[in-house]
Design a protein around this nucleic acid. Structure first.
Lengths: 146, 146
DNA sequence: ATTTGTGCAAATCATTTGCAGCAGA
DNA sequence: TCTGCTGCAAATGATTTGCACAAAT
């Protein structure tokens, strides 16, 4: 997957006349090696350990390239920070996002997916993977709150 | 609905020892009178026409109260601005959000709701109204892009 | 040799906060 | 009167951008 993803990214860059730099390579490798929902700053901190001269801006710029290349899915859960997850090779899935604590529960539900697919057809809408999101309150926060 | 909502808000304020000010009243009245997905700045601009001395901060603060009072649902569609919709008296519904142009299509789908309800039960998760969201690309943007 | 990419710092944009005066209860 | 509320402006936090230098092709 990671190899495939990197190749895909290289092809994307070439097709646009963009260059494959050391920074872009390590950022993309990091992105492809981690599952879950990363944000720019987490990647920045992590990369700094090995490449102390890397800049915030480069991470942001590369994440935008990944999104444009359709390798990354932007998942704006709650509040401020943008998070990204891998798009290629992911099974369709959804997220339950707790509005109180920000916790994210991933789920897969075949029946829900089927309904989603039909609904999107009706509206001429092309959903992306990992696009189904339900916000609400998780059990822990309900207990705390009441 | 509007009367009910305002009364509800007054009760909320009283229960917390908060005060009902002129500003809070007009902001809440505006919020309750408009359907759709408002953001703070839109409300601010609109209110300025009648109350030129109103401040940005007051609108933000009052929107946070409305959210806390469970009268408003925060719907963070795309990118930056937070948007709010009425929570009370809304039928359950979902949003299709186009990632390219930001367009929002509202939908209702009973079967999808039933699946959502079951799924949430399984995960001890309490969904809020208007919480189902699917992101992707709308027809117009697909035509444009390809 | 070009021309794009990087790192830095400054700029933006939405939202929050500190504070001195204002106004509900 | 007594606190809480407002408007202003400054602070914050995430992301973007301008620019001179560095590095891919």
């Amino acid at each position: 997957m990671s190899e495939l993803g990197l190749q895909y990214f290289k092809d994307y860059l070439k097709s646009r006349g963009y260059r494959l730099t050391r920074q872009r390579r390590v950022i993309v490798e990091l992105f492809l090696s981690k599952a879950g929902h990363l944000c720019a700053d987490e990647m920045y901190r992590y990369l700094r350990r090995k490449y102390p001269r890397i800049g915030h801006a480069t991470v942001y710029r590369t994440l935008n390239l990944l999104k444009d290349a359709e390798l990354a899915n932007e998942v704006n859960f709650i509040g401020k920070r943008r998070r990204y997850e891998q798009k290629m090779g992911q099974k369709a899935h959804g997220h339950l996002v707790c509005e109180k604590c920000g916790k994210v529960i991933e789920f897969k539900d075949a029946a829900l997916e089927r309904r989603q697919a039909l609904l999107c057809q009706d509206h001429d809408f092309d959903p992306n993977e990992g696009s189904l999101r339900i916000s609400g309150t998780c059990l822990a926060c309900r207990k705390k709150g009441k």
